[in-house]
Amino acid sequence: MSAHSIRRPGSLIVPSLLAVAMVLSGGCSSKAAKARTVTAQTGSNCYAKALPTVGEGGLAFGANLQTARQKSMNNCIRYAGRSGGTPGTCKVVLAECKN
C-alpha cells in the first residue's frame, strides 16, 4: 500500500492571500527611510567626545572647540547618569576641528 498525500485545494488559499497582502503593503509606507546617524549641523566644524570611567559618554558638534567640548561634557553627564555610570568622572578625550 502506498501512501499519497492529498492536498485540498483550499489549503493554499490562506498562504496565497497572506503573500499577496505582504507584497502589496510593502510599498505603502508614507515615511521616507532615514538613517539614524550622528551628523554635524551646517557650520559645525568641530567635535568633541567625553567619556566617564563607567557608563556611556557623549559626542557633540559645535562651531568651535569650546562649544563642542561643553556640549559633549553635558551629554556625557546626562548619558552616564542614565546608564548607571559615574557622571562626575566625565572627561573630554577627543576634540578636533575639521579643516
Rank of each mutant, 00 (worst) to 15 (best):
V23C: 05
T37Q: 13
L51C: 06
E96H: 12
C76V: 12
S2Q: 14
A32E: 14
C76E: 09
V20N: 02
N75M: 13
R82V: 14
L18S: 07
A50H: 08
G84M: 10
G58R: 04
P87E: 04
L24I: 09
M73C: 02
V92C: 09
Y47F: 15
M1Q: 12
A95R: 03
K91C: 03
V14C: 06
T89P: 08
N45I: 07
G10T: 02
S16P: 00
A50I: 07
Q70N: 15
V54K: 13
V23G: 03
P15H: 02
S25T: 14
R69C: 02
G26N: 09
A68T: 09
T86E: 11
G55Q: 00
N99M: 10
A35C: 01
V14A: 06
V54D: 07
A19V: 08
N75H: 11
K49T: 15
S2C: 02
G26K: 03
C90W: 06
Y47M: 13
C46Y: 04
P15V: 04
K49P: 01
G57S: 09
G88L: 08
K91R: 15
Y79N: 15
V54W: 01
K98C: 02
A19G: 09
G43R: 02
Q66C: 00
I77S: 11
P87A: 12
P87M: 08
A40P: 07
K91H: 11
G55E: 00
L59Y: 03
P9V: 02
A63P: 03
